[in-house]
């Protein structure tokens, strides 16, 4: 996960706490999305960024999981093309494993 994003999420977590904070991912691929979910949950597994050894316990969701929460026209305009292109099930399953 991008080091700059790790720093941003750490700052937001410091400011708002982890109870009412979730992370919404837009990753195009299962492994990278899972890595991001893991980073915000238990810490940066690559030990490269500000979340190395920092367990924020944040829950991450992929935007595909919020299809019903997003206005249909916005989803159609912004996400539907990628939904057709990407392996949605694989990505969502991978991200879910880090919420258990």
């Amino acid at each position: 996960m991008d080091l700059e994003n790790q720093a941003r999420i750490k700052d937001l977590n410091d400011k708002y706490g982890n109870e009412d904070l979730i992370v919404v991912l837009g990753g195009a691929e299962a492994e990278a999305s899972g890595l991001a979910a893991e980073t915000v949950a238990t810490g940066d597994p690559t030990f490269a960024g500000p979340l190395a050894g920092v367990s924020l316990g944040l829950k991450a969701y992929h935007i595909f999981e919020f299809k019903d929460e997003v206005p249909a026209d916005v989803y159609e305009e912004q996400i539907s093309m990628m939904e057709m292109v990407l392996d949605v099930d694989e990505i969502v399953d991978e991200v879910k494993t880090y919420r258990k």
């Binding site: 305009e77 912004q78 996400i79 539907s80 093309m81 990628m82």
Partner: peptide, 9 residues
């Protein structure tokens, strides 16, 4: 244009 892949393409 917006930054979503769909908007870009």
């Amino acid at each position: 244009s917006g930054a979503s892949p769909q908007a870009v393409m």
